[in-house]
Amino acid sequence: MSGIPPVPQLFFGVGATFEVLSALAAFLIAFFGFKVYNFVNDRKYYWFSMAFAFITLSFVASAIVHMLIYLQLREVLVDLFSLIHYGVITGYVILLLTAYLLLLAVSTNLTNKRLLAFNFIILFILVFTSANILNTFFLILLIIIAFITLNYFEYFAEKTSLTTFFTFTSFFMLTISHALLYSKLVLASLSNLFYITGFAFQFIGYFIFLCSIIRILLIREKGFKTNVLTLENASIRKKKQT
């Protein structure tokens, strides 16, 4: 989400719907990631889930603003709207920058916390001290997503399957989306079609994520016969220990 471009009113309604669906995809990924983390206790699952949780929040915030515009409440809530809009843009920048940096760290197996913290600090200073925060933010985000896409392309080349192809394609769509959004932001004279197409590509990327996670959730598991006697013994033993 950038400044408010002069696109048809209907677009904001459609955009908000796209964002809600994208938020659902990000939420399901975050939720399942936390589930795996609970079993495995591996920090990379935690950071991966946190990244998608941040993306979920950013989509929800953005959808609220777009819905307010669509419902023409901008004219009614003049002061409140500008406050909400400013708050949402600031939150959006912080959440997305953190989320994609975490994804980059996970996809490159970056485990050095100091190096990660250094990256965060440098990027946040760079964005928030620049003359045009949104331009800098979108450019940095585009570079980060392009690198994540490259990592997922290498992963796909190494482990070729339909699922890894879909993950790579999702990130590739997000790269195109952010390239289009950044172009429109820098060159205001470009057609609004750039903004709308960028938004559509972002939705396609998250729609592929949604399909991937739904496919995983629908997998039928093999039945494992529970040894009731063992379970009873284990619980007795556990009680004795406590």
């Binding site: 990924i29 399942f32 990631g33 589930k35 795996v36 079993f39 495995v40 990379k44 699952y45 991966f48 996970v106 996809s107 990592n151 997922y152 992963y155 482990k159 399957s161 699922t163 890894t164 879909f166 993950t167 991937s212 996670i213 995983i216 959730l217 997998i219 598991e221 093999k222």
Partner: peptide, 14 residues
Amino acid sequence: NYQKLHEFTETFGL
């Protein structure tokens, strides 16, 4: 739940 957990890990390269 292993099949789902494994598929999730494979899909997202974790």
